[in-house]
Design a protein around this nucleic acid. Structure first.
Length: 481
RNA sequence: GGAGAGGUGGCAGAGCGGCUGAAUGCGCUGGAUUCGAAAUCCAGUAUGGAGGUUUCCUUCAUCGGGGGUUCGAAUCCCCCCCUCUCCGCCA
């Protein structure tokens, strides 16, 4: 959520942010509602103040008179009753007027809030302006010794690459038909070494962040309340992407949602807390199953392990002091960890600066890492009909997104009401909303695609990246079955 | 799933229709005392919104959340959430 006061002071900045992010949120309407609401509130508050004063002044008197009324007779009684109803009349009148204002407030406030929740965080000025992912800018590339970006896989390695789907079949790593039988499209079953490789990457990634980079490992719920989805900024915008468990219709107290990333659990941990500034930055890592409906992606990446409804992900988040430079520094560090990680696996990749149109409402800046997937272009369903995608044509290869590093400033912490102050909740000084950042460490099985495709050998086997071998009992090669 | 108890400030814990934004204790901050410290004493110490004559003042809201009763609600009523205890079931 953005700061309503900041919006009031500088609406242009937020309108500009909307334009850059292709958001159609009506800032002018929001401002009008805000003015209306504050006006109604101040009027209601003034009246309530009067009412309180009256209640204090005439209240005890009413009590007294009511007491006397019980034993009063005749004329006395009538006089007392008249006096009481007169005393009651003034506050009752105020109450009516307040109620009328509140009716209006109850109309304006939800409208205002629903718009406010959708106002995107303006992108940072150094983020390139663009309409879609087509306008993203490559920052740099890295490849292991012996990989030449100028050459195709075949020229680099001396044989035609198989796609990860072919490799999964030949090596017995995944069973797609049975996955679909069980759970429908975009479902899969990892089998044998496929499952072990998946677990090895996840465990390696978790250890990498804990042992080498000092992150605290956490388990988090993947089944959460709506509040956590709104707080982390995935709702209302991304409602269609989440699986919805309708518990209220079966008598439960609250509906639940399956999370699409461990970020929800990690960021929700300290919701409504005032953290001690001295405890920051908090650095958390989790491995969790992620669920995504992939609504609107029909027909895209339908085959293989790329775009699936359920996967596992090691995710890192950092919660730091509300300081732009500190946020920027952490963003770079978190990218650095992942570059080290991907390099240790030996996967060629590039860093991609996402343009404003590709950012999403909650990010000020986002940098993706895309790994080279030699078999990927053959899988494109949106390729033109005359493109060389016939079965015998070797795939040209393509980058595929494997990581995404976001810098959110206080957007998320404001929604989560996560603040900081020297000394924590009982400390002194102003409270301020923290800053937060997140980045993938490894999402599997997607990351298995470049691993299998890059490490495939001419004889049809796949070599195991060295860093994963300790997690597979020293195994260095997965042979065809 | 059944039965019961409870959710109050940073923490512990009173209050159970008006004098309570909230006793008391602890903690924390400042001051006094001291060569210094401990102890003691004094004072202060929630969050958010709106407004202003903007190192401060005024005002409104908040005692798990929402709704209601009342001139007036932390206190009474209803719904929900959460925690704990016992029983049942269970990985």
């Amino acid at each position: 959520m953005i700061d309503l006061k900041a919006l009031r002071n500088d609406p242009e900045r937020f309108k500009d942010g909307c334009r850059k992010k292709n958001s159609d949120v009506d800032i002018d309407l929001l401002l009008r509602l805000d003015t209306q609401r504050r006006d109604l509130m101040s009027r209601a508050e003034t009246l309530r103040g009067e009412q309180k004063k009256l209640a204090k002044e005439s209240g005890p008197k009413i009590g007294q008179l009511s007491g006397r009324l019980k034993s009063a007779q005749g004329d006395d009684r009538a006089a007392l009753e008249a006096e009481i109803s007169q005393l009651k009349a003034a506050p009752a009148k105020l109450k009516e007027r307040i109620a009328a204002l509140e009716v209006q407030l109850n109309e304006v406030t939800p409208q205002l809030e629903s718009i406010l929740l959708r106002v995107p965080l303006p992108p940072d000025p150094d983020v390139p302006v663009g309409a879609s992912s087509d306008d993203n800018v490559e920052l740099r590339r890295w490849a292991p010794e012996g990989w030449d970006w100028e050459k195709s896989f075949e020229q680099n390695r001396g044989f035609k690459p198989k796609t990860h789907i072919e490799l999964c079949a030949d090596l017995g790593l995944a069973d797609f038909p049975r996955g679909v039988k069980l759970a429908g499209s975009r479902s899969y079953i990892l089998t044998g070494m496929g499952m072990r490789l998946h677990q090895a990457v996840l465990r390696y990634a978790l250890d990498f962040m804990v042992d080498r980079n000092g992150f605290t490992p956490m388990s988090v719920p993947v089944l959460v309340r709506e509040e956590a989805m709104v707080g982390t900024g995935f709702f209302p915008g991304g409602r269609d992407q989440a699986y919805h468990i309708e518990e209220t219709s079966r008598g439960g107290g609250a509906d639940m949602f399956l999370t699409g990333t461990g970020e929800v659990g990690l960021m929700g941990l300290h919701q409504n807390e005032i953290l001690d500034e001295g405890d920051l930055p908090l650095r958390y890592v989790t491995v969790s199953t992620c669920f995504r409906r992939e609504a609107g992606a029909a027909g895209k990446d339908t085959a293989g392990l790329y775009r699936i409804h359920q996967f596992d992900k090691v995710e890192q988040v950092v919660i730091c002091r509300a300081d732009e430079q500190e946020s920027r520094d952490w963003h770079q560090k978190m990218l650095g960890y992942v570059e080290d990680f991907v390099q240790s696996l030996g996967l060629p990749y590039r860093l991609l600066q996402c343009c404003t149109g590709d950012l999403g409402a909650k990010n000020a800046d986002m940098i993706d890492i895309e790994c080279w997937m030699p078999g990927r272009s053959a899988l494109r369903a949106d390729a033109p009909d005359d493109s060389p995608t016939a079965p015998n044509t070797p795939p040209a290869g393509e980058f595929g997104e494997t990581h995404s590093a976001s810098r959110l400033y206080d957007y998320q912490c404001r929604r989560l009401n996560m603040r900081t102050r020297p000394g924590g909740a009982g400390g002194k000084g102003e409270t301020v909303f923290c800053h937060s950042l997140n980045n993938t460490v490894a999402a599997s099985p997607r990351i298995l695609i470049p691993i299998l495709e890059i490490f495939q050998n001419k004889d049809g086997s796949v070599s195991v990246p060295e860093v994963l071998r300790p997690y597979l009992g020293g195994l260095d090669r997965i042979p065809p079955k």
